[in-house]
Design a protein around this nucleic acid. Sequence first.
RNA 1: UUGUGCGGAUGUGGCGACCGCCCCGCCAUGCGGGGAGGAAAGUCCGAACACGGCAGGACACGGUGGUGGGUAACGCCCACCCGAUUCGCCCGGCUUGCCGGGCGGAUUGAGGGACAGUGCCACAGAAAACAAACCGCCUACGUCUCACGGCUUGUCCGCGAGGCCGGCAAGGGUGAAAAGGUGCGGUAAGAGCGCACCGCCGCGCUGGUGACAGGGCGGGCAUGGUAAACCCCACCGCGUGCAAGACCAAGCAGCGACGAUGGACUGGUCCGGUCCGAUUGAGUCGCGGGUAGGUCGCUUGAGCCCGUGGGUGACCGCGGGCCUAGAGAAAUGGUCGCCCCGUGUGAUUCGUCAUGCGGAACAGGAUUCGGCUUACGAUCCGCACACCCCA
RNA 2: CGGGGUGUAGCUCAGCUUGGUAGAGCGCGUCGUUCGGGUCGACGAGGCCGUAGGUUCAAAUCCUAUCACCCCGA
Length: 127
Amino acid sequence: MNSPPITTHRFGFDRRKRLRTREDFARVYQARIVKRAGPLRVYGKPNDCGYGRLGLSVSARVGNAVTRNKVKRMLRESFRLLQHDLPNGYDWIVVVSRHEPLELADYQRLLMSATQQLERQWNRAGS
RNA sequence: UUGUGCGGAUGUGGCGACCGCCCCGCCAUGCGGGGAGGAAAGUCCGAACACGGCAGGACACGGUGGUGGGUAACGCCCACCCGAUUCGCCCGGCUUGCCGGGCGGAUUGAGGGACAGUGCCACAGAAAACAAACCGCCUACGUCUCACGGCUUGUCCGCGAGGCCGGCAAGGGUGAAAAGGUGCGGUAAGAGCGCACCGCCGCGCUGGUGACAGGGCGGGCAUGGUAAACCCCACCGCGUGCAAGACCAAGCAGCGACGAUGGACUGGUCCGGUCCGAUUGAGUCGCGGGUAGGUCGCUUGAGCCCGUGGGUGACCGCGGGCCUAGAGAAAUGGUCGCCCCGUGUGAUUCGUCAUGCGGAACAGGAUUCGGCUUACGAUCCGCACACCCCA
RNA sequence: CGGGGUGUAGCUCAGCUUGGUAGAGCGCGUCGUUCGGGUCGACGAGGCCGUAGGUUCAAAUCCUAUCACCCCGA
């Protein structure tokens, strides 16, 4: 309580940790490794950055601009808080289909299970 | 008092802690400052700005449509005019519960022209647009037949009934609409046939910037509806849109067909203007190849606030103050605590206390402004209606 | 962000230009044909023309707003 947790982890989420170009997205999509988790489809592919990066794809079918923004904020916040617990060194793309927005904890749980399944799949393919 | 509808105003409360996001600045591992809306929405209008070398003319096409004003401009806003609906009061008429007129209030109108022309008006109905006559009404005039009466015995007169030729458009009926309305006179019956009032048309007068209003003279009346049908008139409009466009960097590969008073700039056509071009090929079409990175445009603007003056008002002038997102796979969020508000439950010494839930609707900048339209929880204000209470 | 289009029977569409009767094919139901089914033939049901206003005597059609879906543009 009176001693704040001393952590070496930082929970920032700046522009370097996002997928920003057409090539970034195309490279992950072309790996064609995808897991479904509730309303989310998560694509994953290892990168050589040494940290995880996130890209979001939320089409207009999900809802109007307000609900799209809300979903994207939830997913970014989930990734930000979980970024040291998720499998390290991957590029992720989360594609969202139409649904009612969920709580933050639900998105965190969905993201965690999908990324762990993807890592197992990559390890099997590598070995 | 409560509820509903319409119109208007406000637009997710305050403080703090931690973890974060976008932009800017600095004495730069950090610190400081700024960070969604009234509709940011729909993209329905109008502009700014950019490019098309110039942005010009005619036709076509599209838009707007009472008048005057506001504005950079508008299809927006303001004031006024006119019409429609409704309510109240007054007057007149009669068939006494309806019709007509005047005044006032409220609401409302995409509100130029239907005597420039063309088209359409289904069904019903006799007739749907230089009127006509189904039922009906009439027998005065003309004529025929029959009955009766008269005396001057006739191709006579009177009277009555019926028919024909006719007269009429009041009433019935049809329809969304039937060719001015009401009343009186008039007539064989009727009718603007005549008159009064109202309406309509023409001419001129007065008032008003004007739409228009008022009254005068003349005309018995012609001129149905539809222009959110074509169209006519007046006014406006060149096209494309920040994915406009300017610059930098990177990268590639060409091949085939067609092709000449031809092609490009412009789009629907033509004119004007500019440029390119003649088989060593302007350009068009098809196939194929390369790039999808960066900087600028990018936020100081018909800007906002306050005061003051002018104007009925929209709005405008003057003075002072302020700088208020500018990112581009695209930011303004999450967790928690306290206060505050609403509400449920329990306790209560009726002052409150404890605890649970909720703090919201419509919705988020994407070049920028001015409008319009649509969406919207709660609170407040105004109007209308309903209900309840009191008198 | 900008530009354009479509909503009509269960499905695919016509009708809208020039306003008065809502139609076609497939599908569905009943009957006939057949031993039975298919094919074929006859008859029939099924529509607030996406929604809401307006113009008109009259609107699927004309005008305005709104909702949903689809396409195109560096």
